[in-house]
Amino acid sequence: MNTKRNENEFEPKILGFLCNWCSYAAADKAGTMQKPYPANVHFIRVMCSGRVDPQFVLKAYEEGADGVIILACHPGDCHYKEGNLKAVGRHNMLLRLLKQFGIEEERCRFDYVSASEGGKFVSVITDMVGTVKELGPLCLNGK
């Protein structure tokens, strides 16, 4: 069911990097389960969370994203063995870096969502959108 959007409410733009083998399938699953979630997240399918170059994340903010979310396979489940572990380390460093640039850590989220976790997918996305909505728009470089 579509809830009517409040005209004046801030609708954040969020970019989601979904691993083909887990969270992308979970998004599909959420679809077939007919579980609604906010439409603010634009999904990009990657072959593994380890493919998410930190440059993509920074570029997303520069191009106007208010938040970025990276969803990976659970530890031990990554198809490329340790792509998700690389992603965890990079995300951890990004958070520390972004903090120095005055960008709240809630704007950059990492989580594990397996192909069967349609419910978790919906709750993570819903939570992310809600948090970023509360933070308001990200105003970089005077934009």
Binding site: Q55, K59, P75, N92, M93
Partner: peptide, 30 residues
Amino acid sequence: LDQGAKMIAALGSILNLEGDLTEEEITGHT
């Protein structure tokens, strides 16, 4: 494009997070 991001990408690949760690252990260790 970005030297810092490139460095983060590189460092992410050399952290020792091996052994069957739980999600919490991975976060703690990182």
